[in-house]
Amino acid sequence: MTEKTFKTLDDFLGTHFIYTYDNGWEYEWYAKNDHTVDYRIHGGMVAGRWVTDQEAHIVMLVPGIYKVAWTEPTGTDVALDFVPNDKKLNGTIFFPKWVEDHPEITVTYQNDHIDLMEASREKYDTYPKLVVPEFAKITYIGDAGQNNDDVINQAPYAGMTDDIRAGKFYDANYRHPNQK
């Protein structure tokens, strides 16, 4: 795990995080650049889902505290507040009713199934939304650099986050030569 002090927006961009919400859901998230994020979901109702090149609004609120927000093609809205110097995060996920009722539809590489996400959003109920506000503990911080397509480029597997935290997944250049 990288030990660094976050002060500027540039300190945050290019950083790879693993965090676990207080409800037990584990997520992996990467600030790919100043307008794009990638992520994998390892625990919770949509575990197995992964996404690359998600457009997002990324700002620094004050030195070392960052706000990231986006809307997915599923209609899910996400707002995350990162406090990486304290290894904390607060997130709120606003799941449309259809995702709560049919989470299995979303458990895929979203980028290959945008049409399905949009069709499901139109076919099923979107309201009432399931609002999941949670605090999380950041359990891994990696300095992957910006626009590194090796950070999130395969489906999650059981034990992946343990492999990453143990230094078994990425090499010294933040690439994973033993891609599973």
Rank of each mutant, 00 (worst) to 15 (best):
E3K: 14
I93D: 07
V151D: 04
F95S: 08
R175F: 09
L9Q: 02
H176F: 10
D77E: 14
Y27G: 10
Q154G: 11
G91P: 00
D125R: 14
T36L: 12
I93R: 03
V78I: 14
D150E: 15
Y19P: 01
G24E: 07
N147F: 08
F169D: 00
T74Q: 02
L13T: 06
E100F: 15
W50I: 10
R165W: 06
V46F: 08
V131I: 15
T36E: 09
V62N: 09
K180N: 15
T5A: 11
N90W: 05
K137G: 12
E104I: 10
D150C: 11
T2P: 01
Y170T: 04
A144N: 02
N85G: 08
K168R: 14
K97L: 10
P73R: 00
G91T: 08
D171M: 01
K129L: 11
R175H: 15
V151A: 05
Q54C: 08
V59Q: 10
D86S: 12
D22C: 01
G145Q: 08
D125G: 12
N178L: 13
P156Y: 12
Y19K: 06
E118K: 11
G48D: 11
W50G: 06
N173D: 15
Q54N: 06
L80R: 12
R49C: 13
M117I: 06
G142V: 03
Y27A: 13
N85F: 04
R49S: 13
F17W: 03
Y39G: 06
M1T: 11
I58F: 01
A158P: 12
L13H: 06
N111F: 09
H176E: 10
T108P: 05
K67D: 13
Y124H: 11
D149S: 15
I141M: 04
F12E: 00
T5W: 07
D10F: 03
V62E: 15
T76M: 15
K32Q: 14
T139L: 08
F6L: 01
T139F: 05
W70K: 00
P63R: 03
A56G: 00
K180C: 09
D22N: 13
P96I: 07
V151P: 08
L61N: 11
V83T: 12
R121P: 03
T15E: 02
E72I: 06
K97H: 15
E122T: 05
V62R: 14
V151L: 06
P103V: 12
D11F: 04
P63Y: 07
I141A: 03
E104L: 10
M60H: 04
L116N: 07
V78P: 02
F94H: 10
G48V: 11
T139S: 15
L130V: 02
Y140T: 09
Q110W: 11
T36D: 07
E72W: 04
I114D: 01
F82N: 03
R121Q: 09
H113V: 02
I141L: 05
Y157D: 07
V68N: 01
Y39C: 04
A31L: 05
